[in-house]
Amino acid sequence: MTESPNYPQSPASASPGQAPAPPRPGTIEAAFWAFIAAPVIGLIGGLLIFADRDKIAATLRDTNRQRGGNLTDAQIDQTVNVTMITAVVIAVIIAALYLLFAFKLRAGRNWARIVLTVLAALQLISLLTGQSTIGGYLAVLAAVVGVVLSFTGPSNAYIAAVKAQR
Rank of each mutant, 00 (worst) to 15 (best):
G153L: 00
A91Y: 03
M1I: 12
A157V: 02
T83P: 08
A87S: 03
I41Y: 10
M84P: 00
V147S: 11
W111E: 02
R24Q: 15
N156E: 01
V147K: 09
L105C: 00
I76K: 07
A21N: 14
N81G: 10
A57T: 12
I36E: 09
F35C: 05
T59Q: 14
A34Y: 06
T59Y: 04
A96K: 06
A30Y: 15
A91H: 01
Y158P: 05
P23S: 15
I56T: 11
N81M: 08
K163F: 03
I36S: 11
K55R: 13
V88F: 03
A107S: 14
L47Q: 04
G153M: 00
I114E: 03
S13F: 11
A112F: 08
S155Q: 03
G69Y: 13
K163A: 07
I125A: 13
I94V: 06
S13D: 12
T83M: 13
A57Q: 14
V115I: 11
G45E: 09
V89Y: 07
G130Q: 08
M1K: 12
I94E: 00
A91C: 05
E29D: 15
I114K: 02
A107P: 10
L71Y: 10
G135Q: 07
L60N: 13
G108D: 04
G136T: 12
R109E: 09
R67C: 05
I90P: 02
T63P: 06
A21K: 07
G136I: 07
T129P: 02
Q66L: 10
A38R: 09
G108V: 03
A157T: 10
L43W: 05
A164W: 07
I134S: 14
V144I: 14
V148D: 06
D52Q: 15
L122D: 01
I49S: 08
A96T: 08
T117I: 07
A102N: 03
E3N: 08
S10N: 10
L127C: 06
P39C: 05
A38L: 05
I44D: 06
L60W: 06
N81H: 04
L99E: 00
A120H: 02
I94K: 01
S13R: 10
N81F: 04
A102S: 12
Q131R: 12
R109T: 10
P5N: 09
Q165A: 11
D62H: 10
L116D: 00
P22L: 09
N70Y: 15
R53S: 14
A14Q: 10
R106N: 09
T27L: 13
S132L: 14
Q123V: 00
Q123H: 12
N64Y: 13
L48I: 14
G68F: 11
A57F: 07
S155G: 10
I90S: 02
F101W: 11
S155K: 10
I56Q: 09
D54G: 15
G130K: 13
V148A: 08
Q165N: 14
V148I: 14
N110E: 12
A21S: 09
Q131I: 02
I93R: 01
T129V: 15
